[in-house]
Amino acid sequence: MTSQERDEAMTSEEVLALPPSMDLEAACKALGISRVTGYRLVKAGEFPCPVVRLGRVIRVPKPGLLRVLGLDQSQPISND
């Protein structure tokens, strides 16, 4: 993956296709922010959606991410 690909936000279709919970890196990509910024926001308690800490692992539940992005989980995923 090139640095350009890492910095580009996901499309709505890509976000809707994510699993029910994801790692912080996937959530950051969906939000269009860097991984470093995401970890800083989590540490400060300011990540824009709820996160779940499981030891050293940080998971982001999909419903909260969709709310922040203004997406509806019931939208059909386009295969265009």
Rank of each mutant, 00 (worst) to 15 (best):
M1T: 13
M1A: 14
T2S: 14
S3M: 03
S3Y: 03
S3F: 01
S3K: 02
E5A: 15
E5M: 12
R6A: 15
R6N: 15
E8M: 14
A9Q: 05
A9H: 04
A9R: 05
M10N: 03
T11P: 07
T11Q: 10
E13R: 03
E13M: 04
E14M: 08
E14G: 06
E14A: 09
E14T: 06
V15S: 04
V15W: 00
L16F: 01
L16M: 02
A17K: 00
L18F: 10
L18V: 12
L18C: 12
P19I: 07
P19Q: 13
P20D: 15
P20Y: 11
P20G: 13
S21Y: 07
S21R: 04
S21M: 10
S21Q: 11
M22F: 11
M22H: 07
M22P: 02
L24T: 04
E25T: 06
E25C: 02
E25H: 04
A26Q: 11
A26K: 09
A26W: 09
A26G: 12
C28S: 04
C28H: 00
C28W: 01
C28I: 01
C28V: 08
K29G: 12
K29C: 14
K29Q: 15
A30L: 12
A30W: 00
G32P: 10
G32V: 05
I33S: 09
S34I: 00
R35T: 14
R35A: 13
R35N: 11
R35V: 14
V36W: 03
V36C: 01
T37W: 05
T37Q: 06
G38N: 01
G38E: 03
G38A: 02
G38S: 01
Y39R: 00
Y39F: 09
R40Y: 14
L41K: 04
L41D: 07
L41H: 06
V42R: 07
V42N: 06
V42E: 11
A44D: 14
A44Q: 14
A44R: 09
G45R: 01
G45K: 02
E46S: 11
E46L: 05
C49G: 13
C49S: 14
C49W: 06
V51G: 07
V52H: 05
R53G: 09
L54T: 13
L54F: 15
L54D: 14
G55R: 02
G55Q: 09
G55C: 11
R56K: 13
I58F: 10
I58D: 04
I58E: 03
R59C: 15
V60Q: 04
V60H: 01
K62Q: 05
K62W: 00
P63E: 10
P63K: 11
G64S: 14
G64I: 07
G64E: 10
G64V: 13
L65K: 04
L65F: 05
L66C: 05
R67E: 10
R67N: 09
V68T: 15
L69A: 10
L69S: 12
L69I: 05
G70I: 02
G70F: 07
L71A: 08
D72Q: 12
S74W: 05
S74H: 15
S74K: 15
Q75W: 05
Q75F: 06
Q75C: 09
Q75Y: 08
P76R: 08
P76N: 03
I77F: 11
N79D: 05
D80K: 15
D80Y: 15
